[in-house]
Each structure stands twice: as C-alpha cells, then as structure tokens.
Design a binder for these strands. Structure first.
Length: 465
RNA sequence: GGCGACGUGGCCAAGUGGGAAGGCAAGGGUCUGCAAAACCCUGAUCACGGGUUCAAAUCCCGUCGUCGCCUCCA
C-alpha cells in the first residue's frame, strides 16, 4: 500500500501523488510574530516536521517553505503599546522562533519568506486580481470579491448564504459583500506602509501566503499545511486568491493539525491560557513534546497537561532503555534467539512504514517501536552481547530518527567520563569486599551528580542521566 | 443559529465491518547485598438507545456530553 494522505479539501484519505515525481512542494503557514510562541505553535511545527521527515525517508526531496507574517495589525498595535519599532519587534520574535525550532529538533525550512520582503510579488498578485475582476479598490483599500468565484467556501464547506445569515462581521459599506476580505489596507498615520497603485498601505493577511507560495513553489503545490483554525478564513481565502490568479488548482493536499488542548480548551492568546515554548523547554526535554505529538493522531486535539507530559517523559526513557549496552560479561544468546531478534526488526520496519503510510499514523508507528524495545531488552536480559544487539538497536535509532526523536542525547561533557569510570571501577572492588555502605555512598553521590549506576551480576554500567 | 470533529481500561492513545496495538500508572513475580533498570504475569460488555448485517468499537438514525471554526489565532 502506498502513502495515503487525508486532505481537508476532499475530507478523505487519498493516494499521495506529487506534481513532479519524488519531489514535494510543501508550504506551511508560520506564525505572526508579535509575541512569544506557545506550545501550540510548537505542536504544529512538530507535526509538519514529522511529515517532512517521513516523506524524506520515503525518498522524496522536500522543498519546505514556512513564512513569517511580519507586518500586521497585531504587530503594529503591540509595537505602539511598547513604544518600539514594529519591524524590530518582529525581528526579535523571528529570531526567537527560529531558535525554538532548533531546540525542538525541527528541520529548518528550505525558505523562510517574510511578507515585508515579498512586496513586489504581493502587489503584482493584487493588480492581477483587480485586472481579472476578482478584486476592487475602495478608498485606498483593496478587497477580494467573494461572489465572483463560484466555488468560494469549498475548503471549509461553507456557503456564502449560510455565512451571511449568522454573520458576526462588522458592516463596512465600502465592501460590496460583508464577506469580502482585504488584500490591501490603506495606511493610517504613522503605520508602516509601502507604495502601491492604490496609495500607501500594507498587505492583508491572506494575500502574502498566496504570493509567497507562488514565488517560491510555483503556481501549484503538493501540500499546504497549518493548524485547523486556519481553515477558515485564511486558507479558504488563499485558495480563492491563488486559483483566481492562476486558474489552476492551488494545493493538491490540504493538511491540518488539531489544536492542543489545555484543560479542555484550545490554547490561544486570546484565552490567555498559554504555555510558551520557552517555559516548556525550561523544565522538560524537547523530545517529550515531540513524543506527545507522535502518540496521537495529528488531526485530533492533543491533550496537554502535567500528567501527560510526565507520561511522555517516561515513555521517552523507555525508548532510550533499548539502546543501553549489553550487560557486563554477557555470554551471548543462541543463534535461534538472534534470529528472532532480526525477525522482529524486519517486522518493526514493515509495521512502522505501513502505519506512517496511512496518513502519517505516528501513534501506530510508535507502537511498533515499543515492541522492538521490548524484544531488544529481552535479548539483553537473556545475555545478548553488544555485537548481537547492534543491528536491532541501529534500526530503532534510525526509525526514531525518522520521527525526529534523538534517543542518544549528548548529556554532560565527556571530560569527566574517565573519572567516573575510575570511580565505578573502584566501587566494584569495594563491592567485592562487601563494603555496602561505602558502595552505596558512591552510587548515591554519583546519582546526585547525574550519573546513574546500574549494578548487574558481573559488573556495573553507568550513564549520564 | 450554521458548518465540522470527537467520546476506546485509572490516565494518554491507535484501530474504523470478522483477533480491542502501544505508552504511563497500579498490583503480583524474577533478578539483586540493597537500590535502580530490565524481564515475566494481571485488567476494557469500545458514551447511551435503536437499526442494518451471518458478523459492528468500526456502517445508519436518535440521545447525551466534550471540543473546534464561523472575529485574530498553529
């Protein structure tokens, strides 16, 4: 079975076929940079990182574009409030966000365009939409004419008539239809502004993505992604703009991640219930968050609280447990047992792939990895040598890596390793002499310094915790 | 009000017509000087009520509950 991908547009899984063989054009909506990013942003970035890594594992070359919205009402308001320059404010948060992505082991996008640096493309696109009759100028603003396009609403499953009925939209008599949305906003005094055929102003939110996607990935792309809160109006409007412009289908697959839930509610700035990425990383490993994301379907809401964070951290340790070295003095396991271990690695890879092929079912894939963990640990408990464990451990590490997990973390500096070795060796003599108090003291003190010592029948192993 | 999801053991969660994965927690056991780790064993009438089917957690209808979007939002 080949890769199946669920698309919001068709509301079903479809076979994944790219425009160009073995190449994927991926556009993911990035953040509006006016404040610290929270773990919900991280979830979305992680979801698409996992998708990207798996596509690469499957042999696709992925061109990944993630934009920064660096000019917008919220940025301007915030800058005014703080009395700083809006561009500097945006720059600060862009740098911070890029660092978060790095900390979270998220592969850098191929391109990170910014709205303010793509103004020519944006202006060209708006002009073309006006020329084609899909947009109109009104008092320095430019609006998209939603009624001009018959299939407006196809992504979110809405009809114009229904929307108007329960509309919570402010009335603006400059608009022909209250649902028309701004492509260009006339600048007010003191606001950042660019010259345009309609006077000084700045782009609306939706147009930048259409322009940047077109500029960096071409008229048609394979995957457009983002949080499911962007389906309407943002992505709906992107489709309208791009398809009105090119007359072609914009994105083949629309992939949307579910919202992270904090105490039963979506985490969002307006609700004020957010946990920043900074706060999270201050007290938890990055992979714990990744594991939480992996452990559930990316389209479903993700439960986020202290309990599940703790569960994820423990689960991470379990994955890592399989990479521990053989017991000291291991005698080796039988050829039959070794064969069973090899067979399990084959089963694991097959199961991993078939799960991930099914719309990136990472929770299913993880299940197979845990099975391999169990079998590796069984083999070690039965006396397998490092040599015998190696190929299974390599597969576990490789497949975990496909999910973006780093099981072998570089912990403390290696400078102290030789001293720890010495201490553990001396302690071994102490144990032989049955000086248990001293032996336990060494172990406790090492533990306090972050060294976990584990005793076995014929010796001890240790590692940085 | 409109549109759309979801409800699986104490917790998280996969599975979506025919054997209920996996992780965490809990209890019991093996190993061990002790500890830790690891290993072994133990648990689910799949929200509720109808219906379709030889067969339903999985399809259909209804009820209840939770959540998202419809305004900025990953």
């Amino acid at each position: 079975m080949s890769l199946q991908v669920y698309s919001t547009l068709s509301r079903k899984k479809e076979p994944f076929e790219t425009i160009e063989p073995k190449r994927v054009r991926l556009y993911v909506c990035g953040p509006t940079v006016y404040d610290k990013a929270h773990v919900g942003h991280a979830m979305s970035a992680l979801v698409f990182d996992i998708i990207r890594r798996y596509l690469q594992y499957r042999g696709y070359e992925v061109k990944h574009v993630m934009n920064y919205t660096d000019v917008d009402d919220k940025i301007i308001n915030r800058a005014n409030k703080l009395g700083c320059d809006p561009f500097e404010l945006a720059e600060t948060y862009i740098q911070q966000y890029a660092q978060h992505l790095k900390d979270l082991n998220i592969l850098p996008a191929t391109v990170n365009p910014r709205a303010t640096r793509e103004m020519d493309e944006i202006l060209k696109l708006i002009s073309d939409l006006i020329a084609k009759g899909y947009a109109y100028e009104a008092g320095g603003d430019v609006y998209y004419r939603v009624e001009k396009k018959a299939d407006y609403g196809k992504l979110s499953g809405r009809k114009l008539d229904d929307m108007r009925a329960g509309a919570r939209i402010e009335v603006d008599e400059r608009k022909e239809n209250p649902l028309d949305f701004a492509l260009w906003k006339a600048a007010k005094e003191g606001e950042p502004a660019w010259d345009s055929p309609w006077g000084k102003g700045r782009p609306g939110w939706h147009i930048e993505c259409s322009a940047m996607s077109g500029a960096h990935l071409g008229e048609q792309i394979d995957i457009h992604g983002g949080g499911n809160d962007l389906i309407f109006p943002h992505h709906e409007n992107e489709i309208a703009q791009s398809e009105a412009h090119t007359g072609k289908q914009f994105a083949r697959y629309w992939i949307h991640n579910g919202m992270l839930q904090l105490s039963g509610e979506k985490m969002s700035k307006s609700l004020g219930n957010l946990i920043t990425i900074e706060d999270f990383l201050a007290s938890h490993p990055a992979d714990a968050l990744r594991l939480m994301v992996l452990n559930s379907g990316y389209r479903n809401p993700l439960t986020f609280n202290d309990e599940v964070i703790g569960q994820a951290e423990k689960a991470l340790e379990r994955l890592q447990s399989a990479l521990k070295p053989a017991a000291p003095g291991a005698a080796g396991i039988s050829p039959e047992a070794l064969k069973a271990l090899d067979e399990q690695t084959t089963t694991t890879r097959a199961g991993f792939e078939s799960s991930m092929d099914d719309d990136f079912n990472s929770a299913g894939a993880l299940g197979y990895l845990f099975e391999l963990v169990r079998v590796i640990n069984q083999a070690r408990a039965d006396g397998a040598t490092d040599e015998q464990l190696k190929s299974a451990q390599d597969v576990l590490e490789e497949l975990s890596g496909v999910l973006g997990l780093r099981l072998r973390l570089e912990k403390e500096s290696h400078a102290a390793d030789a001293f720890v070795d010495l201490l553990v060796e001396v302690r071994q003599d102490v144990r032989q002499a049955k000086l248990w108090e001293l032996s336990d003291k060494i172990r406790d003190r090492l533990a306090a310094m972050g060294v976990q010592v584990e005793d076995a029948k014929s010796g001890s192993t240790w590692f940085w915790k």
